[in-house]
Amino acid sequence: MDFLNALVALLNYVIIPATSYGSQLALGALGVTLIYGILRFSNFAHGDTMAFGTTITILFTWWFQSLGVSLGPLPTALLALPFGILATAALLLFTDRAVYRFYRRKKAAPVILVIVSMGVMFIMNGVTRFIIGVRDQNFADGRRFIINALEFRKMTGLSEGLALRTSSVITIVTAIIVVVLLFWYLNHTRTGKSMRAFSDNEDLALLSGINPERVVAVTWLIVAALATIAGVLYGLDKSFSPFTYFQLLLPIFASAVVGGLGNPLGAIAGGFVVAFSEVGFTYAWRKVLAYILPASLMPHGLVQLLSTEYKFAVSFAILVIVLLFRPTGLFKGKSV
């Protein structure tokens, strides 16, 4: 029985990774949910928007690195991030102008917009692959750990080490800042309030003189920032490849739907629900159990409920269960 070591192992392998993954999912899901709330369609190009923003950020990171500019212990990518956001914002505003606006004016059915977003997905995906190739890119630099396992063991005398990675801390801190800013913007500024009004009741919002094009443009700008930040954080934490980002679509949608599509608070909660279940189901619990169970009770095997390759099954299962039993999500979303 060794609760302290068990707790450290739990923190190290489950709680910290799941919290940072959950923050990344939450930022991604916020983008999906905002588009759903304001533009009223499920954007299948969101994973590729994240990939595009990350690609541009990586290019700037490389450029800064070649110039010798760095942030010291922090990754250079944070310095490149604003440029990635700007490029993504330009791309999204252009896409809206060239593609989506036509269907919005025509009041096309949501399902048509979904198919249109599939076309956009193809283009963004191809452009990203064209720019940066299909291989994995690791662009994290700076100091890797804030506390590494060895130091922790020395410091505390515990046998289990706790590795606190810089990327996890950056992810969590950034996510908190972004979410606070976003909610402040939505609740306290004029444009933010008009966005919420537009999302709640489009006709009424139009009647009270809200300019829909402005609301839509601001939405795309916010989505560009959210998507790029989410993408860069994910890339710093793990690594970047266009295909992985495309595959993030499923957990991101699961998070948005679990929280209730169109509900920003729900998207955040959903992100953490999905991340914690994914990590919880695919983690081999043997290490933690070894500390708290007596040897005679110790089960054989890794005590892993599902192998990591099936992590998509977890988000899928959550998605289907929520849709079947509580279609509006945990928090009240728009969907019927």
Partner: peptide
């Protein structure tokens, strides 16, 4: 499920079968 939910659900099924 509604059309875009069905889309997301089938996307998941496809990925799971391949996995």
């Amino acid at each position: 499920l509604r059309s875009d939910y069905l889309a997301i659900a089938t996307l998941g099924i496809g990925q799971i079968i391949v996995a």
